[in-house]
Design a protein around this nucleic acid. Structure first.
Lengths: 333, 333
DNA sequence: TTCGCAGATGTAACCGGTGACATGATCGTC
DNA sequence: GACGATCATGTCACCGGTTACATCTGCGAA
């Protein structure tokens, strides 16, 4: 592997001049630049990333910590971040903890060993240790989607409350009165915001919230499945259900299918988070779509600005939109 | 940030001893080790990744190049690779080219600048330049899913031909005669292998292949959509269709739905690649499931072995399985 | 007693760019 | 014609671990 000294020798200049020529600094003569570029090209010279990182004291790698890489929402966030990062010639390392404590420890280590110039994270509130490690993180940090209690860092999110309020309002406008929500853990701020929007929709309709129709603490497919089964087993089951995230929706759908119920005839369903196959489900699922890709881009952007020295960065709130398909209908009774 | 010299000073030893103690080498006294570990702990010492990479001449980062990070198949491969890599204390950088030439150039650069200790790649045959850059790649390289023409590197794949032959055989056993395939580009070895399995299934049934039922050169959702529309517009349309990958299947499904046809009554459908929402599509889609996660693990494993110095690594062929759901039925006519 | 060897630890060059500072050349000005 | 400013380029310490080699100690064998 040719090094900068080889290039310098071949071009007949010093290593400093090579550095400067390659960075296209104005202080270098056009003639010298040409010589250096020719030499570099002839030797297939590519500067060592490690050497550069060491001498500059900063890497060109951003980190993204998410609970689950396979969840399409996070995959899109990652894509957006990676794209924006690449624009600025940064790499992106995507790490999925998925509840492996050993993995988490490693992640925290690489957080300190200079691997990352900055970090974006979405944590599930349950892993206390990780959150506190993040708190101790001195380097640039931004949060995506949700903010764990006590973590001060800029956040990229959607206006959960407003969009939920509007979308759930649809249920009431269609005549539903028994409207339910499968919500997440109480300490998730996203769950809280969506729940708050849900309550507002009840209020907008001039109705008192049926607390027994709110099922708390669910995450993932199994959570949605269990919650939906419990709702269906109620003496007076709801006629409309709002699911607070994509995996919960999938679980709920499976429960509904298992119970032999038809959407939207027997039950109306509204999902938070869209999925690429929702149009193909029977019936196509109406969903609140978060701009996941843009959220990723915005997170990278925020992070790069922090790395560049900006401080006092404000949260970014992006709009989510309701994608109307066919899972909402008037109540049966 | 505390450095190794700080630790050495505090422990009253030399930097070399610190290195050795931290790597738990047997030549270091238990007593000395204890001193060093105590000092390191007190200073919150974490070795610099960049310095280590520079002095060892090798990073602890693996690279994965895929066409599209959001495609759940690749996401699962990435997950598997990341998990296996983490076991060996390696990071994984996932890069999605998705047809951006500038991005590709960057990827090729980081391929040479030592960012990656090794590389796993799945390329779409169209990007000639990238493939040739990969060929020039001197470092450890493994391929996932498909091997571009002329690239010599160990490959992790599934037995496309066999599983396709068996699965497509189902069509004939159900009585279908007009069996179609939406296939990929002719220069994809995966497409060739699946096509070959498809032909074998025809032969097993004692029938001559209807070449006009084979639609070549499709990739992605639009490809599947277009191909399916063309098939449906034939004077004598097929009664069963095999889609050669997941996105093509999604496109085909949309075309079928748009045409107002019912599966499996009007048309039977078989997909290569399973998707998490296929069970919820109407009807649930029968699919050939590739062990994507395991493929990722295997790829990382292979790569780590190459990095460790092993040569002459053989291809790894993992079994794919048919997941029977409800999209196959007897032909209408 | 001395030599040799093994085991424990220290020393310092090295990895390959970077950038502060030094140097040398050129040019305008008084 | 000398001096200072400016510009182009060179020199070299430095980033922080790693590792080959040197050193020192202690113990057993000759």
């Amino acid at each position: 592997m040719a090094g900068i000294r080889d290039v310098a020798r071949l071009a007949g200049v010093s290593t400093a001049t090579v550095t400067r020529a390659l960075r296209d600094e104005p202080s270098v003569t056009a003639e010298t630049k040409a010589k250096v570029l020719a030499a570099a090209a002839r030797l297939d010279y590519v500067p060592s990333a490690a050497a550069r990182a060491l001498s500059q004291g900063r890497s060109n790698v951003l980190g993204l910590f998410v609970p689950d890489v396979v969840n399409p929402f996070y995959a899109l966030v990652a894509q957006g971040m990676a794209d924006r990062a690449a624009d600025a010639r940064y790499q992106l390392v995507i790490a999925g903890s998925h509840l492996n404590p050993e993995r988490e420890r490693q992640m925290v280590t690489s957080l300190h060993d200079g691997t990352f110039a900055g970090l974006a994270a979405t944590t599930v509130g349950t892993d206390e240790s990780f959150t506190s490690a993040l708190t101790a993180q001195r380097g640039p940090l931004v949060l995506v989607d949700r903010r764990p209690r006590g973590l001060h860092a800029p956040l990229v999110r959607t206006d959960n409350r407003k969009v939920t309020r509007d979308a759930v309002g649809q249920f009431f406008r269609l005549g539903h009165r028994k409207v339910s929500m499968i919500s997440g853990p109480r300490d998730f701020d996203t769950a809280c915001q969506r729940l708050s929007g849900f309550r507002l929709a009840y209020r907008d309709a001039g109705l008192a919230v049926r607390e027994d129709y709110i099922s708390h603490g669910h995450l993932g497919e199994e959570g949605g499945y269990r919650a939906m089964n419990e709702l269906l087993a109620m003496p007076e089951p709801p006629t409309a259900v709002f699911c607070f995230n994509n995996l919960v929706t999938v679980g709920a759908l499976k429960a509904i299918r298992a119970a032999g119920l038809k959407i939207p005839t027997d039950l109306s369903l509204l999902a938070f988070d869209d999925m690429s196959l929702f149009p193909l489900v029977e019936p196509p699922i109406t969903a609140i779509a978060q701009p996941a890709y843009e959220m990723g881009r915005a997170a990278a952007d925020l992070l790069l600005r922090r790395i560049a020295g900006e401080t006092d960065l404000a949260d970014i709130v992006l709009p989510a939109t309701l994608v109307t398909r066919e899972s909402l209908g008037p109540p049966l009774s």
